[in-house]
Design a binder for these strands. Structure first.
Length: 176
DNA sequence: GCCAACGTTGGC
DNA sequence: GCCAACGTTGGC
């Protein structure tokens, strides 16, 4: 299982909105590097859901990939701002995944806090002006983020070992 | 609202 | 293929 970070402007689509709708197609990504990461994502992968252009900017919760990469529908919709007339339906240029909520953080984990976590120093997110909207997260980075947010995940025995679910709040997850 | 970062576009 | 101009992102 892999870990990722997905950026979204909460004015456009927030973590609370993800909770409300249950499942969301992550379409509209029009950057090749981000697209390539989307194509690596598999069902069961966990994502930090990051609020950009927000106060504070930071991670609002955890989401799970529920469907791996498939063609982004909006690239073929002439009425969409994400329409790409140069994309060929036989070889779609852009991909999307479906994500679902796992657990909301008790409060947004601010970017400033994330940047100070040891494992995050090497992340593009720690660099000023990073505009990548989909980026990989290492297991230590993911663990540090959960700990800093005071959130623990426990595995769901019924759903198998690769599926995690919420949630123990208000108690620090244990260092292994 | 400012502006740094940086990806994309287009002239050559 | 270079690179200046331009547009967008996104923190502050």
């Amino acid at each position: 299982m892999a870990f990722w970070l997905l950026k979204s402007e909460p004015d456009v689509f927030s973590y609370a909105e993800l909770v409300r709708v249950g499942t969301e197609p992550w379409n509209g990504v029009r950057n090749y590097q981000a697209r390539n990461y989307l194509r690596q994502m598999q069902a069961g992968d966990l994502c930090l859901f990051y609020h950009s252009n927000a106060k504070p900017a930071g991670v609002a919760g955890v989401a799970r990939v529920v469907r791996g990469a498939y063609p982004d529908n909006l690239q073929f919709d002439p009425d969409s701002p994400y329409f790409d007339p140069k994309s060929n339906p036989d070889e779609p240029r852009w991909s999307m995944v479906d994500v679902a909520p796992v657990v909301a953080f008790p409060e947004v984990l601010p970017l400033e806090t994330i940047r100070a976590l040891p494992a995050w120093l090497s992340s593009p997110l720690a660099r000023k002006g990073s505009r990548l909207s989909v980026l990989p997260v290492t297991p230590p980075q993911f663990q540090e983020a959960l700990e800093a947010a005071n959130v623990a995940l426990e595995s769901d025995k019924n759903a198998g070992p690769s599926v995690m679910k919420s949630l123990v709040r208000g108690e620090r997850s244990r260092q292994k």
